[in-house]
């Protein structure tokens, strides 16, 4: 600034106005950038919501699950959108111990999420991806899984089995 003044008086005034306009231009665009960024970031980060993806889901009458057996049950995810197609369907393993005592396991292996399969004769769940194996009660039998199978909360209302779920189970949010 001081140098400009010293060099010539003629250029002093116009640069100030130019600088002012430049400053206004920059500031305006900064404000506009923020105004654009708020909805864009809000939109992009929209999927991050805390604990909303939980709902009671009907699996069917408890007679469908004979005592002492483990059966595959499927349901439609309650948080589906119209164009989800077959991916809205979710499977889970229902183990009826006796009476109204159940265990409902997520299909996803706790290792890396692959679908585990129930083998009734050996009473084991086996995972096709990396060879994780679980016992009938979901506890870890062998292989890389870090935990027992994910278990849904369940309740029985009027002879119907309901589970609480709605999101993909992971180690940071099991069911």
């Amino acid at each position: 600034m001081a140098q400009d003044d010293a060099n010539s008086e003629v250029v002093t005034a116009p640069p100030t106005r130019r600088k002012f306009l430049l400053a206004v231009g920059l500031a305006l665009n900064a404000v506009v950038a923020v105004l654009v960024a708020i909805p864009v970031l809000g939109y992009l980060l929209g999927p991050i919501r805390r604990r909303t993806a939980q709902s009671w889901i009907l699996l069917g009458p408890i007679e469908r699950f004979p005592a002492g057996e483990t059966r595959l049950a499927t349901y439609e995810n309650p948080f589906r959108v119209a164009w989800d197609g077959p991916t809205a369907k979710i499977a889970c393993w229902v183990r009826r111990l006796e009476g109204e005592q159940f265990q409902v396991f997520a299909i996803n292996c706790t290792h890396l999420g692959c679908p585990v399969r129930w083998f009734a004769p050996s009473r084991l769940f086996m995972c096709p991806c990396h060879g994780g194996v679980y016992y009938a009660d979901g506890s870890h039998a062998s292989g890389p899984p870090p935990l027992a199978l994910y278990e849904y909360d369940y309740q029985i209302r009027d002879g119907q089995l309901w589970v609480q779920g709605g999101q993909i189970p992971t180690l940071s949010e099991p069911v």
Binding site: N77, F79, R80, V81, A82, G166, I168
Partner: peptide
């Protein structure tokens, strides 16, 4: 997980 999938499960939004 939710950012990756765009929702609570692997589906349309993913």
């Amino acid at each position: 997980v939710e950012l990756l999938l765009g929702g609570p499960i692997i589906a349309g939004r993913t």
